[in-house]
Amino acid sequence: MYPQQIHQYIRQFFKENNCEIIRESDNFINVQLTIEMDKRIMNRPFYWKYLESTGDEPKPAQLTLITDKNRLTEGIAGEVVHYGSPRLNQLFKVTKELGSFVQMYEEPANPSGEQTILTPWVGVNYKITYSSDRTKEILYSLGINLLTGAILNGFQESICLLNLGSRIAPNTFHVPYIIKPIRALERLDAVIENQILHDDHTWAEEAKERLRKDLLVLEYFYRDIEEADRPECYESEKKAMEEQYETKVKIEVINGGLFYLYTNVG
């Protein structure tokens, strides 16, 4: 992420969370946190505990973040943020906490006054992690039509440019779903598992092979000692290798939600 992208991200993040931007240039941003945001990111529980007991007026902090240190010309004191910095990681985490579940309604572009009917979908963004002593991740954005059960890959890309709102627009209606959202989620989970099953798992075979070779070497070291007489470190060494090369697949849901769409995406 470039400094400009980070700047845009941070700006948007605070705006969406109702934190007032007091001063800003292209290279820094100074915001007034809300009470809720202060509690989330400033890590000062004792202050808030104290306020609760005394009943004093809360004074949420201001935060100055420098998004491009190299171009900063103003004499601004603040926290330098960059891709990988702890503060930005924290904001990413909070974004995830506050952006996990949505319910969105499409607002048709040219309301002609006619009634508009929306179709219900469940969309879920998954992250799959393959890991042994190395890792690889894959994203899947799946959507399922709650009327037909049709499944769409690349769902998020199909809807991210649509005009969506959190309330249903006037003169707009949606069909009740046939497949229950929870049932739909289970179907998507099954699709993901099937996807994993049919994926290329050379990586796992290679990890097993690395384990096999390392175990051979270890056995060689202790070959002159009877199994029963081998020292404790033989066992711990072996266990360490099994953990080192253990092949695992992890499925995570990044976020997802209910979508009522007018556009025919699938």
Partner: peptide
């Protein structure tokens, strides 16, 4: 996640912000 989703379907929790939702996916 499934449990959180259920809570919202049953109106026990509020839904989240769409912009933050999109930002989260972009970061991932």
């Amino acid at each position: 996640w499934k449990e959180g989703f259920e809570e919202r379907l049953e109106n026990r929790q509020v839904w989240d912000n769409w912009t933050l939702y999109k930002m989260c996916y972009e970061v991932e």
